[in-house]
Design a protein around this nucleic acid. Structure first.
Lengths: 182, 182
DNA sequence: CCTTAAGTGGACGCGGTGTCCACTTAAGTC
DNA sequence: GACTTAAGTGGACACCGCGTCCACTTAAGG
């Protein structure tokens, strides 16, 4: 059964309104009611599809993340398979910083603290990095994967950029880290 | 003007009750009202000193953190000054993992997401690590300091241990990281 | 049309937050 | 040891956001 026409219309309105609010105000300052009102929709309609803010942010991010995941699995080196692990990790860092830069507010909305690690996306990044660490012969790839992903925490990224650090410098530092560790 | 006797008594009761609640239930599941009731004081009394949960957790952590900070500044090598940067960083990682292990619930209560970076403690750790990075001739010590501290995020630590990873393995991985980077 | 089931939206109850202020009590003064 | 006063106390209160629930609306197939 396909989605009903009015439902599809409202979903589009909700996502558009949420993206607007997230990026202008920051995810923490947006309530469910705000989104409903901005979308011209009742609270019940909002909750029908999205149980909380995180779900909306995840939906907004889905497309962008999926694209990167696709490239990691089947794209050209060094992002995709074929290049040595250290170079693949460096390319991954570069891509992730760019993704953070463009969608930091959304990522922050989707991953409130602890919940960060339980999203499907984190699991994907984690597996990818662990495989790279294994290929490079790391001692404890399982733990190292989490450690390598830690500097990409959205809270940290926002803190650094708000202190005036340009994303390019962050990416450069991470690339050096990749070169030294794998 | 010194603190009044009844005020001091209540402060002790509040801190004791809060520590008990934080460690048994986890910081997220504790409300201000819970703490007030457990301490046998009114809400107003609680808010007089501590505007929110974070302030209480910070007060509880203060002593432990201060002790480590003291050792970093004036203790024996390798934790204190004198040893090469890589070894000092490795020792710092070991000490921090131990601190997390003992007080993870408190740290989590004190540093809810973004607020982590605005506490005085984070600033101290950051300065310490930046100095080590500088001494080791790192390209961008300012950014590297944040990157090196990222794996110590309490949310990550709790996620790893709840997945069954023993703290010793985390510490070991971090020590290797220190050896390779500085 | 008519039916029906998905979709809608706002009223509602709940729980936590932070404030406010009338009362209490510690501690200095004579 | 009564008196004063200012810090300290605690609970009532208003507010806000969350999530649910259900009577109503509307799309879409027969």
């Amino acid at each position: 059964m396909p989605e009903r026409a009015d439902a599809a219309r409202n979903r589009a309105k909700i996502l558009a309104a949420a993206e607007e609010l997230f990026t202008t105000r920051g995810a923490a300052e947006v309530t469910m009611e705000d989104i409903a009102k901005a979308a011209g929709v009742g609270r019940g309609t909002l909750y029908r599809r999205y149980p909380d803010r995180a779900a909306i942010a995840v939906a907004l991010l889905d497309e962008h993340e999926r694209r990167l995941q696709e490239v990691l699995l089947r794209g050209d080196p060094p992002l995709g398979p074929g290049a040595p692990p250290a170079e693949r990790l460096a390319a991954f860092y570069t891509a992730m910083v760019e993704l953070l830069e463009r969608h930091a507010a959304l990522v922050l909305g989707a991953e409130v603290g602890h919940s960060r690690f339980t999203t499907g996306a984190y699991g994907f990044w984690r597996t990818h990095v662990r495989v790279l660490a294994e290929a490079a012969g790391a001692a404890d790839p399982d733990v190292l994967a989490d450690v390598l992903l830690a500097p990409l925490a959205p809270e940290l990224f926002l803190h650094q950029t708000s202190r005036g650090v340009p994303p390019a410098r962050i990416a450069a530092t991470l690339r050096q880290l990749a070169a030294r560790l794998l």
